[in-house]
Design a binder for these strands. Structure first.
Length: 472
DNA sequence: CTATGGCACGGATT
DNA sequence: AATCCGTGCCATAG
C-alpha cells in the first residue's frame, strides 16, 4: 500500500511509443549476459552511442563506486543511461536509506567480469566477500587451473611458489573453494571431492560413518565395485556394502563440474543458468537483528552509456545527405538509453518488492519462503503480469548467503514444504514412509497428498524410505 | 499388504 | 494458449 518512498519518476505509465514499449519488453527479458551482447552490438554499429568508462553519476556528480551511485536517487537526464541502479530495501518501518560503501575495497571487485558464465567466476562469486585481495588472486589461479571435471590437476605447491606465499595460505583458499557449489570443486582427486561431499552429508546426518569410512579407506575397492573386499575392510555385511556403494553413487559426484548426477535432481532445466553470474545481488547490511537488505541490479559493462557529445554537435551541421541517417542513429541511441533506464527501473521495483516480501526467506533460508504468485505481485506493482514473467525469467540473484538462485525461485510454491520434508527426514530416527511423512505434515498444517510428498522427496534427491541409511 | 513410481487429468499460473 | 503442479488411480516390487 504505502510506497511513498519511491522518488523515481513515479509515472511509469507515461505515454510510450510502441517502439519504446517493444524494446523495453525485450530488454527486460534479457539477463546480464544477453544484455552485454546487445549493448556491445549497439555500441559497435551506432556512432551516436558512447561508453563512458569512468562514469560520474549524472545527477549528483559523484564518482561511481562499483558502478553504483553512492547517494543519489534522482532521475537522471535522459541522455545518459542511469548508472547501476540499486535500492536499499528497508525493513518495513525504516524508510529507505542509501548506503555508501567505503571505497577501494569494493572497487577491486569490478574486474570480476559479470558476463562470464564459466565455473570459475561462478565459484568466485560465492566466496568473493570472504577473500582478501591477495587471496583473490590465488583463488583465481586455482579456479582457472581446474580441469573439465572441476578437479585441480596441478599441485598446490606450485601455486604457492608462483605467488611466493606460504602453502597454508593457498590451502586456506582452496578449503573455501572446496565448500562452494558445486561441492568439491578444486579437489585434487575424485576421492577428495567425494570426501568433501560425504562430510557435508555426514554433518547433516544423512551419511553413515561406515559410508564415510568406505570412501576414506576403501576408495579403490569402491571404484572397482569390489564389494566383497570392501565389506571386509570396513567390517559390514556384503549387502550393506553394496547399499553403501549404491548410495554413494546415487548421491555423490566425483566430478564436481559435470552435470548433476542421476536423474533424481529435478532441476535439470536449471543447470544452464546455474553457473551464470547473477543479475541481481542482495546483500545483508549490518549485523544487528534488524539487518537491511540492499538490492543491487548488476550492470554488465563497466561504465555507462550516453549519447556521444561530439556526435550531437556534429548532427546540427551534418551534410544534408547524411542528416537523415544521423538523426536516425541519434533517435535509436536515445531510445535505447531510455529503454534501458526503464528496464532497470522495473527490475529495481520488482526486486525491492520481492526483497520486502521474501525478507525472511532471503535472511533465513528456504524454509521461510512465502508462497507468492507473479500475478499478485503484478497487481501490487501495477504492471502487467507478463512484465513480471519476462523480468523474472532467465535471471538469477545472489543471496546474502552466497547462494545463486534463479529469481523464479521466489515464486516457488512448494519450496518451504520441501525443506520441511527435508528436516523431518533429517530428524527421523528410522526411515519414515511417505505416508507417515504426510501425516506429520498435516499436523503441522500442510495438507498435501501422499503422492505429492513422494514427488517432493524425489525432487530433493532423497531416496525412498527403504533405501535410506539407518541412523545410529 | 505396504510403499512407491508412472501416467494422465484438471485446475491454476504464466 | 501453453505450461506447471497437485493428485488420483493403477501397476509393480518387496
Amino acid at each position: 500500500m504505502a510506497q511513498a518512498h519511491l522518488t523515481y519518476h513515479k509515472a511509469s505509465h507515461r505515454p510510450m511509443t510502441t517502439a519504446h514499449l517493444a524494446q523495453t519488453m525485450s530488454l527486460l527479458e534479457m539477463n546480464n549476459y544477453e544484455l552485454l551482447e546487445k549493448i556491445q552490438g549497439e555500441l559497435s554499429n551506432n556512432p551516436a552511442l558512447e561508453l563512458n568508462e569512468d562514469p560520474k553519476c549524472p545527477a549528483c556528480g559523484k564518482r561511481l563506486i562499483n558502478r553504483l551511485c553512492p547517494s543519489c536517487s534522482k532521475p537522471t537526464s535522459s541522455d545518459v543511461f542511469e548508472p547501476l541502479v540499486f535500492v536499499s530495501a528497508r525493513n518495513d518501518s525504516a524508510s529507505s536509506t542509501y548506503y555508501q560503501k567505503s571505497g577501494e575495497d569494493i572497487d577491486s571487485f569490478v574486474d570480476i567480469s559479470p558476463q562470464t558464465e564459466d565455473l570459475a567466476s561462478y565459484v568466485l562469486a560465492q566466496i568473493r566477500t570472504e577473500l582478501k585481495f591477495e587471496e583473490r588472486i590465488i583463488a583465481a589461479h586455482i579456479l582457472t587451473s581446474l580441469d573439465d571435471d572441476g578437479l585441480l590437476s596441478i599441485p598446490i605447491v606450485e601455486i604457492a611458489m608462483f605467488h611466493h606465499v606460504p602453502l597454508s595460505a593457498v590451502e586456506h583458499v582452496r578449503t573455501l573453494i572446496l565448500n562452494c557449489e558445486p561441492l568439491g570443486v578444486g579437489a585434487s582427486s575424485a576421492k577428495e571431492a567425494l570426501l568433501i561431499q560425504a562430510r557435508h552429508l555426514f554433518n547433516q546426518g544423512k551419511f553413515s560413518d561406515n559410508a564415510l569410512k568406505a570412501i576414506e579407506d576403501g576408495y579403490s575397492e569402491l571404484s572397482h565395485k569390489n564389494f566383497r573386499s570392501l565389506s571386509k575392510l570396513i567390517g559390514v555385511t556384503l549387502k550393506e556394502a553394496e547399499n553403501i556403494a549404491n548410495y554413494i553413487s546415487d548421491n555423490l559426484n566425483p566430478f564436481p563440474a559435470r552435470a548433476h548426477w542421476g536423474e533424481h535432481h529435478a532441476d535439470t532445466s536449471n543447470l544452464p543458468t546455474r553457473y551464470q553470474s547473477p543479475d541481481v545481488v542482495i546483500t545483508r547490511m549490518g549485523d544487528s537483528d534488524k539487518p537491511q537488505l540492499m538490492v543491487e541490479v548488476l550492470w554488465p559493462i563497466r561504465g555507462t552509456l550516453r549519447i556521444n557529445p561530439d556526435f550531437r554537435k556534429a548532427i546540427s551541421d551534418a551534410p544534408p545527405e547524411k542528416s537523415d541517417a544521423w538523426n536516425d542513429d541519434y533517435q535509436k541511441a536515445h531510445l535505447l538509453i531510455k529503454c534501458l533506464g526503464q528496464r532497470n527501473h522495473t527490475l529495481v521495483q520488482l526486486m525491492q518488492k520481492l526483497a520486502e516480501q521474501q525478507r525472511e526467506y532471503i535472511l533465513k533460508g528456504d524454509a521461510h519462503l512465502q508462497p507468492l504468485t507473479r500475478a499478485s505481485l503484478a497487481e501490487e506493482l501495477d504492471v502487467h503480469e507478463s512484465t513480471i514473467s519476462r523480468a523474472v525469467s532467465s535471471k538469477s540473484v545472489q543471496l546474502p548467503s552466497g547462494k545463486i538462485v534463479p529469481i523464479s525461485q521466489f515464486f516457488d510454491r512448494s519450496l518451504h514444504i520441501r525443506t520441511e520434508i527435508k528436516q523431518i527426514i533429517e530428524q527421523e530416527s528410522k526411515p519414515l514412509s511417505d505416508t507417515k511423512i504426510t501425516k506429520i505434515l498435516s499436523k503441522k498444517g500442510y495438507n498435501i497428498a501422499r503422492r505429492t510428498v513422494a514427488k517432493y522427496r524425489s525432487m530433493e534427491g532423497i531416496l525412498p524410505a527403504h533405501l535410506r541409511l539407518k541412523k545410529k
